[in-house]
């Protein structure tokens, strides 16, 4: 049974239908990506999943319905979002941000171990643990956002355009880390405009266009699909 299963998810802002009833699944241990152009409704989908916007349809996480639930209860079940634009606490230090990531946890030894792991994964953050998060570079902020989400030991991690606004070298670094996280058994749903990278790192993919899913399948197949190549890989 899949970890996340979504049926007919809809998100609308006033008269604008950003997501028009989409279905998708993410299985345990999978890395799935959702690609689409600007304004396709990718971020809205993730916000719907997290209960951050009003939505219709059915969302099941590990078999239980989580639609219309409050964000904090969804987080408590193990869903975590690294939002577009990172959403870090700019006036808290790196260490305090990571500390907030573990807010709902009470297992002090486990938190300590995860903190050590986070600094191991992102040595740059360890160097800057006392620095205000808002003064980090964009790439470092992205690292912090991912590390902070991992501090909550998510069962499913949602990443919204982790490559946005970053230089190629930093993008590669972030994607290496994503691969590492996935190999450690964290289930991931990755939203990207950068279809090339996303299709390489993921096992399955969905293509979204103006609020609807138009294509889906194994990433390797989609990467060879002439339609996808034309629309998203710039060929």
């Amino acid at each position: 049974m899949s970890l996340l299963s979504v049926r007919g998810l809809k998100v609308a802002y006033g008269g604008i239908h950003a997501v028009r009833g989409i279905d998708f699944e993410v299985a345990h241990g999978e890395l799935v990506c959702l690609i689409g152009a600007n304004g396709a409704g990718k971020s809205s989908t993730l916000k719907g999943l997290m209960g951050l916007v009003a939505h219709g349809g059915e969302i099941r996480f590990d078999g239980e319905r989580v639609h219309h639930a409050a964000t904090h209860t969804i987080v408590a079940r193990g869903l975590r979002l690294v939002p577009e634009g990172r959403g870090i606490f700019g006036r808290l230090t790196v260490a305090e941000n990571l500390d907030m990531g573990a807010y709902i946890r009470r297992d002090t030894p486990g938190i300590k171990a995860d903190l050590a792991r986070a600094y191991e994964l992102f040595p740059r953050l360890a160097e800057r643990r006392a620095q205000l998060a808002g003064t980090l570079s964009g790439g470092e902020q992205q690292m912090l956002a991912i590390a902070r989400a991992l501090m909550g030991r998510p069962r499913l991690l949602l990443l919204d355009e982790p490559s946005m606004g970053l230089a190629p070298l930093m993008v590669r670094k972030i994607y290496e880390t994503i691969a590492t996280i996935a190999s450690e058994g964290v289930t991931l749903l990755l939203v990207e405009q950068n279809a090339n990278l996303a299709l390489k790192v993921s096992q399955r993919a969905y293509v979204m266009e103006s609020g609807a899913i138009t294509l889906s399948g194994p990433s390797a197949e989609l990467a060879n699909d002439p339609q996808v190549r034309a629309a998203y890989l710039g060929e």
């Binding site: 951050l52 409050a70 904090h72 408590a76 979002l81 939002p83 606490f89 808290l92 907030m100 807010y103």
Partner: peptide, 23 residues
């Protein structure tokens, strides 16, 4: 814990909710 949660809400309410805080 309550004080820390208030601090997070003060900083960024959406991010605080995403940390699992019952805002």
């Amino acid at each position: 814990r309550i004080g820390r949660a208030w601090g997070a809400i003060r900083e960024d309410e959406v991010a605080a909710a995403a940390m699992g805080i019952n805002t």
